[in-house]
Design a protein around this nucleic acid. Sequence first.
DNA 1: ATGGTAGTTTCACTA
Length: 270
Amino acid sequence: MAGLTLATWNINSVRLRHPHIARWADEAQPDVICLQEIKCQPDQFPRKEFTAMGYPHVHVRGQKGMHGVAIASRLPIEELDDHKICPRGEARFQRVKIEGIEFQNFYIPAGGDEPDPETNPRFKHKLDFLDALEAYARKRSMEDADIVLVGDLNIAPREHDVWSHKQLLKVVSHTPVEVDALDRVLSAGDFIDVARALIPEPEKLYTWWSYRNRDWRKSNRGRRLDHIWVSPSLRGPALAGGPGAFEIWENTRDWEKPSDHAPVTLRLRV
DNA sequence: ATGGTAGTTTCACTA
C-alpha cells in the first residue's frame, strides 16, 4: 500500500455520534480511526455500524458511561498486550498493531479545574498518569519499534496551541507543570509532534472548542488537545507529505449536535 | 469572579 491515513477523534459518545463518523469518513477516507471518550462498554460498541461504513476490524477498551477508547480499521488488527498506565485502572489506553505499525491510543485525564495536585485529586491523577506514561515511553524507545501515539492528551503544549497563552497559563490544559510533564513524555519516547513538525508556530492550531461558547467560530477560543506523535523510525513517512498531509476537520464542529473535538488526520507514506 | 453546554453514571458527576 502506498499510504495509510490515520485519524484521531474524541467523539464524546460513540453510540450517539457514529452517524457523524460515517458522514465524515465518507469524505476523509481514513484507514484507521482512533476514538476517545466512547462512553460505553465493549459490548455496547456499535460494531455493525462500523462494519457497514467499511471498518470491520475493531478493538475496544471501554467502561460504563465514561472515558473509553476504540480503534476501528479497514485493515486487520493484531491485538497487543495491555500495559497498565492509568493509576486508577480506567479505560484510557489501548495498543494494537496494524500493517506492522503499533498504534497507541490515549485519553489522558482532563484534570479538573484547579491546577493544584495538593487540593485537586483529578489534577494529581493527570500528573501521575503522565509520569507513568513517561516511564513507559522511555522503556519502549529502546526497542526501535514503529509507533504512532495518538489521542486526546488534554494538554495544549505550545503558546500558539491556545487562543490566549497569557490568559490560559493558570487554566488546566495549558499550565507549565502539565506542559513540562507532556514534554518529558515526548522526549522519553523520542517522539515527533507531527502537527508542529509540519506546521510550525506561530500558526495557530486548535482541535477543540468548548461547548460553552455560543458561537465557537466567532469566539474561536480553541485549544490543540488532540495529537499525533510518531517514533523516529516513522519520521520520513509522517513528514513526506508536507503540511497538506495533516488535517484538522473543523467543519464537523458545525454539524448538528457535534463533538466538542474535531477529527485530525495524517496521511502516512508507507 | 462567574457562568456558560453536553453526555451519562442523572436532581450528580465528568468534561
